[in-house]
């Protein structure tokens, strides 16, 4: 059990770190959204499942309800996070920000 939790936590932290570095490294705003949106959501899912496994340990009613709440957080993030990203992209398009494209034709 402990080993599983540790592996999940390490994976989640790698994802978070990747997201943070990706926000810095990518060239423009639209491509920055890719690491920000996906890696954060993925890291959150994995980390949260590790926490839920850890919380369920004593296995009584209260612990089960708490870990179900943690899973519920994941569900809500799953619904809201793509919507937030979509609305940011939409705002960017409407504001007239041009997407960065590779110039290789010339």
């Amino acid at each position: 059990m402990m080993v599983t939790i540790m592996i999940l936590l390490i994976f989640g932290l790698i994802f978070f770190a990747g997201g943070a570095i990706g926000i810095i490294r990518f060239p423009d705003f639209y491509s920055r959204l890719h690491p920000a949106g996906k890696l954060d959501t993925g890291g959150l899912v994995i980390t949260m499942s590790a926490f839920a496994l850890y919380t369920i340990q004593p296995f009584d009613l209260e612990a089960i309800i708490t870990s179900i709440k943690i899973i519920l957080i994941v569900v809500f993030v799953f619904i809201t996070s793509p919507t937030a990203i979509h609305s940011i992209v939409d705002a960017g398009i409407r504001a007239g920000l041009e997407p960065w494209e590779k110039q290789e034709d010339k």
Binding site: F76, I79, T80, P82, T83, H86, S87, D90
Partner: peptide, 15 residues
């Protein structure tokens, strides 16, 4: 009419 935002709001408000 922005479909994604509207549907998400509709689904999440009662919760």
């Amino acid at each position: 009419y922005d479909l994604v935002i509207r549907t998400t709001c509709r689904m999440i408000i009662p919760f």
